[in-house]
Design a binder for these strands. Structure first.
Length: 272
DNA sequence: CGTGTTTGACCGGCGC
DNA sequence: GCGCCGGTCAAACACG
């Protein structure tokens, strides 16, 4: 009797182990997809930056100002510093990975549905602003990054393009700066899982857009200055959400917000 | 009862 | 100066 009980228990345990193994395999697959996607993003960023560098050299060959680019794909963390050695390693890894994933990465990217592009980014020399993009978990279709140094409200003019996408035009004032990142994402839940806790403090319907815009504050720390706005881009339930993060967290972030994909490209300076 | 959401009121910036 | 508009506040409410 006890013997058969033990055998039954063993079978149940075996089944459990098998289940866990299957789950593990699935997670591994998911991770590899995410990694592939991340690598293709890195490639894309470096390509865009190279193009930008080329364009700026062509545009202003006699101008001797430095032109720096900081990109850090992390949500609201303070600036990441890499030593020269780290940069070299990062570069080597990127090359290695890009060769490995040359084939099929495009296909996988569209299948997984993650992409982003830098619309514009420019900084003046001796400023210390890092661009941050929230890590979006699954369900993200397109991340559309618009980041600039945002001075006081007085100096910011808000215009809109055809897609009701907010574009910030910064007038001359390099001192007062805030991080601002726009992310366009498709998910059922407007509160995409970026690892942080948000508390809604308001909702408004803009005149130019009948769809409501929600305002959230980070509630992970009592006086965290980070805010985000979530604006639906279409009327149907499956439509995209434009999420705009503003500010830098004053507290450590959970794993969800700090885990990869992460892109760090520090100081690409062009000297004519 | 604590925490989060809703929603109308209020405030400051900006254009005319 | 006035009106419009976007962003924020805060009281009321809902929920676990």
């Amino acid at each position: 009797m006890a013997e058969s009980d033990k055998e039954e228990e063993l079978d149940v345990t075996k089944a459990k182990v098998e289940k866990v193994r299957e789950e593990n395999l699935k997670l591994k697959l998911l991770l590899s997809t995410i990694l592939t996607d991340y690598n293709s993003l890195q490639m894309h960023v470096s390509k865009v930056l190279q193009q930008q560098r080329g364009a700026s050299m062509e545009l202003d060959i006699n101008h001797h100002d430095d032109f720096g680019v900081d990109i850090s794909l992390r949500l609201g963390r303070s600036e990441l510093k890499l030593s020269e050695k780290d940069e070299e390693l990062e570069k080597m890894n990127l090359e290695k990975i890009s060769e490995k994933n040359k084939e099929g990465s495009e296909k996988k990217r569209s299948a997984f549905g993650l992409d982003f592009r830098i619309q514009s980014f420019e900084r003046r020399p001796n400023t210390n602003e890092t661009m941050k993009l929230g890590y979006l978990s699954r369900g993200v279709k397109e991340a559309n990054v618009v980041t600039k140094s945002v001075p006081s409200r007085r100096d910011v003019k808000t215009t809109r393009n055809e897609n009701q996408q907010e574009v910030l035009e910064t007038l001359e004032q390099p001192s007062l700066k805030k991080t601002r990142v726009c992310v366009k994402a498709t998910c059922e839940d407007p509160l995409i899982n970026d690892g942080c806790q948000w508390r809604k403090y308001g909702q408004k319907t803009a005149k130019t857009n009948p769809l409501p815009r929600a305002y959230y504050r980070c509630s992970m720390s009592t006086n965290c200055p980070v805010r985000k706005q979530v604006q639906r881009c279409g009327e149907d339930d499956n439509s995209d959400y434009m999420t705009t993060y503003e500010g830098t967290h004053d507290h450590p972030l959970p794993m969800e917000a700090t885990s990869p994909p992460r892109i760090v490209l520090l100081h690409q300076t062009v000297t004519p």
